[in-house]
Nucleic acid binder design. Structure first.
Lengths: 149, 149
DNA sequence: TGCAAATATATGTATCTACATTTAATGTAC
DNA sequence: GTACATTAAATGTAGATACATATATTTGCA
């Protein structure tokens, strides 16, 4: 459905305003679809993203700083996300001997197994993104990259 | 910057996965840019969105149900957002005589004045969206509409 | 060395959100 | 008209988030 109908606003001041509102709206829409998919697995989106980063590093550990740097949502609190993951035994955390300020965070076998279960979610299936053709998906990425440039 | 570099993930499983992650990431990026712009005006994004809906209805009142219906986040608590807006005297709330279960929410002159002040933010200025050409912005809207279809 | 600055992480706090429950009013079946 | 279901809104609560601050460790430099 067109964004005009979706939010019942027939006109916009500009294509920019329309795209802007559409971006915010659609992203929320996608996130909500995704939250529904995640629920059965007992992890939130930020937790999932941290697990993915840790898998990318595996078997090397990651520090909290590295997580903050790589996380999609820079402002959210990496320490406390790791707290939650540790409580679920999906990661381990221990002080790094070389620099005792830092902490080595490692994904556990249980964490890897969970991600493996969740891998088919990564395709974007169920989040609407597959309503696009592959070419359109690539075009979308290009436009989004340009916004952040 | 390309999303691959941004989150330091050199490859994706598919264009779909890449676009999906890019959408989440960019939306967060835009929202954070926007939150910065909003701060001086003392309203959050959800509060602003409710005010916009109320302006769209003006001078007719809106019920809480209508707000929930139009807001993206259907589960979020419209009552409490209206609480905040009422405390700032940006809206009024009174029981509807025809159906005493419902509440008529109306934007005040002060609320309209605030939105007017904020109108130039709506152009997308400062949120990166104007890094696109007008044609690209329109293209982006089309792609986002298709995702939600 | 000794001490300030920088760095890495954790924590305190207020606010926000999701989800469930509660209260009140209306609608409907009998 | 009474009883039960439905609807509208508000509220209670747990958990998450944003932002500031605290604590510990390391680094750099006089």
């Amino acid at each position: 459905m067109k964004i005009e109908e979706e939010i019942k606003q027939p006109t916009f001041k500009s294509e920019y305003q329309k795209a802007h509102i559409n971006l915010i709206y659609t992203s929320g829409w996608v996130q909500q679809a995704q939250a529904g998919l995640f629920k059965p697995f007992g992890v939130t989106l930020p937790q999932y993203n941290v697990l993915r980063i840790l898998r990318g590093q595996h078997p090397k550990p990651a520090t909290i700083s590295l997580l903050i740097e790589r996380m999609l949502d820079k402002t959210s609190n990496a320490s406390r996300i790791v707290d939650k993951l540790e409580a679920k035994e999906l990661v381990t955390r221990e002080q790094c001997p070389a620099d005792r300020r830092t902490v080595d965070v490692l994904i556990t076998e249980k964490g890897l197994a969970l991600l493996k279960e969740m891998d088919n979610l990564e395709s974007g299936e169920g989040t609407g993104i597959t309503n696009l053709t592959e070419q359109e998906a690539a075009q979308l990425s290009d436009l989004l990259d340009k916004i952040r440039s």
